[in-house]
């Protein structure tokens, strides 16, 4: 080496100082990107529908009765039935669900691979979402208790309690759960179409909630104004509203006046 040790250390530290100063420019880490347009959401749904996914094997199940957990409500068990003959795979339900629940977009690479955040998917031409299992495998394995079951029969998700271990997603037999890999708000992929539903943070799991917010609002209103028992009559989910052929039926399995029970479902 040409220079002596002292000069070498001096020049090294000088270089280091210049590097640190250079790195001190303000990097806009927390800049929130702009909001996406409605058209982007519509395009994404169309892209999702174009990618065919195989449907699961269908099995015959009997009509659900009351929920069999301690403290289950004996009058309310909300659920959904989809008439596969009526459904023509138009995908309106998916778009309606995304807008109702502020489901974020995904990046272009993830979209190419088919990893969308849509709570409802078309599999083999028929819509599939969380089945709100009575003995849910996802709820059993959630370590913090963020995935739990309401006495009314809904499999719910507490985003604030979620620590992102993704055990629930691994254990779901129908792969109906979605994980927020991206910070959607920061990347400009999320838009709050509906103020009733919170935007999820990065690192939490989400899935179909059977439009819990609509049920809760209806329950509050009903209980405030009336002393009768609330049966959730008249509440519809976004997907069932959007279906033009009325293939998606939402209702209360334990309510004889509910469309789920009234209409002649093939047993």
């Amino acid at each position: 080496m040409g220079m002596n040790r002292r000069d070498f250390i001096k020049s090294c530290s000088l270089v280091a100082m210049m590097g640190l100063l250079g790195a001190c420019r303000k990097i806009p880490l927390d800049k929130i990107a702009g909001e996406p347009s409605l058209k982007q959401f519509q395009d994404e749904v169309r892209l999702a529908m174009s990618q065919t996914k195989k449907m699961l094997d269908l099995v015959k199940v009997s009509k659900p009765g009351p929920l069999r957990i301690p403290g289950a409500s004996s009058v309310n068990r909300f659920g959904m039935a989809i008439d596969l003959d009526l459904c023509d795979g138009c995908g309106e339900c998916i778009l309606a669900c995304n807008l109702e629940n502020n489901v974020p977009l995904v990046t272009a690479e993830e979209a190419q691979k088919g990893h969308f955040m849509h709570w409802m998917e078309l599999r083999g031409g028929s819509p599939l979402m969380c089945a709100h299992c009575g003995n849910a495998p996802c709820e059993k394995v959630c370590p913090t208790g963020a995935a739990s079951h309401t006495p009314d029969g809904l499999s719910t998700m507490m985003y604030k309690r979620c620590t992102g271990s993704r055990f629930c997603g691994a254990n779901c037999p129908i792969k109906a759960r979605k994980f927020n890999f991206n910070d959607a708000q920061k990347m400009g992929l999320a838009r709050k179409f509906n103020n009733e539903v919170p935007l999820r943070e990065k690192g939490v799991m989400e899935k179909c909630s059977l439009c819990l917010h609509r049920l809760q609002n209806d329950r509050l209103q009903f209980k405030t104004l009336s002393a009768e028992e609330w049966r959730g009559r008249g509440v519809t989910t976004a997907c069932s509203d959007a279906c033009k052929r009325r293939a998606i039926i939402f209702g209360n399995w334990l309510d004889e006046k509910s469309p789920l029970v009234r209409e002649k479902l093939p047993t």
């Binding site: 370590p143 208790g145 979620c162 620590t163 271990s165 993704r166 943070e201 990065k202 690192g203 939490v204």
Partner: peptide, 10 residues
């Protein structure tokens, strides 16, 4: 974990 700061909830 997706949300590391919630690890204590386990």
């Amino acid at each position: 974990l997706g949300v590391i700061e919630n690890f204590y909830m386990v």
